[in-house]
Design a protein around this nucleic acid. Structure first.
Lengths: 163, 163
DNA sequence: GCCATTAGTTAGCTCCACTAACTATAAGTA
DNA sequence: TACTTATAGTTAGTGGAGCTAACTAATGGC
């Protein structure tokens, strides 16, 4: 019954372990591709995390730093440094909230918004070009898979809050 | 009526652009999860790229540095530094090939192989736990999607060689 | 008024990744 | 043979991402 033939230590096909193995293999590769596409003129000097932060701020103007760190899934200090780099490039505004003076109000500058628009569109286009090797139905399958992966990530994020 | 009401500039559903958008969103999140699972006792102090290099050397003993950089998809200098860190931790052996004295022969030490085995198994298990939220058929769909993504990555890698 | 909590920042570390410049070996060629 | 070119790695220098720990400053509760 689904007994594996003890070839090394391969997990049974279709199992969670096999899928985990796939994730461990494919996700880092995909991430590398994204980074490289970003660096190659697509991202106008923005890193992937930076693009993500800009996109977040675009959708949540006035957000606090902890909102950013929460969204990005990194420590406060990391988010602070990331935001600081963006502020120095004048892509993001950072001012203390008049009420709640420990809070900080983040937002995009005009330049930041413009750059986000360009970088986002280009990155998407570049990735889309790479997707040309798939047929329409394959594209749909990939989309389904990504949605499932998203669900897994959301569940994992929740699980991390209350372990 | 899954017709969207023209919210901003959403690309048509199921298009390559929509899928690219998904990838841009989901892959970085997934990568973050992997990194964190690795750091949290799963990876015994190994980073994701380090684990990947060890796994590669496990399957290709005697590989050269350029083989590593090729596999990892990074510049030679990056691979050299990565390998150097592993050598300093005594997880990897590095000796010059007697024939072809500019070449280098890489391999795992016993400790490296043991650590790889542990870290790999644990990382897989941790990720597999997160997959528990999916049903069997969903798991299969995710697996399919990952295989498609893998194909895209391979095509992209080839395209990068001759642009 | 004091104390605990909360929001961010700073400092110090490691790793990843890049480019450019360099060394050393090998292979080709005049 | 000597000169040149190509190949394999390393070194140096830069910058971003991520972490923890320790700190400042503001708020809120008691």
């Amino acid at each position: 019954m689904a007994q594996k033939t003890k070839e090394k230590k391969e997990p049974p096909k279709g199992s969670r372990e096999a899928c985990a193995r796939q994730i461990l293999d494919v996700v880092p590769r995909a991430m590398r591709l994204l980074r490289r596409e970003m660096r190659k003129e697509a991202g106008q000097g923005l890193s992937v995390p930076q693009l993500r932060v800009l996109a977040f701020l675009s959708g949540s103007p006035g957000a606090s730093l902890s909102a950013v760190s929460d969204f990005a899934g990194v420590a406060d200090a990391t988010a602070s440094a990331m935001v600081d780099r963006l502020v120095r490039r004048e892509l993001v505004t950072r001012e203390t909230d008049p009420e709640e003076r420990r809070r900080v109000c983040l937002g995009l500058t005009a330049e930041g918004a413009a750059l986000l628009g360009r970088a986002r569109a280009r990155a998407r286009t570049r990735v889309a070009q790479n997707l040309a090797v798939l047929s329409g139905s394959e594209l749909a399958s990939l989309d389904d898979g990504l949605n499932l992966l998203r669900r897994v990530l959301e569940a994992a994020a929740e699980a991390q809050d209350r372990p």
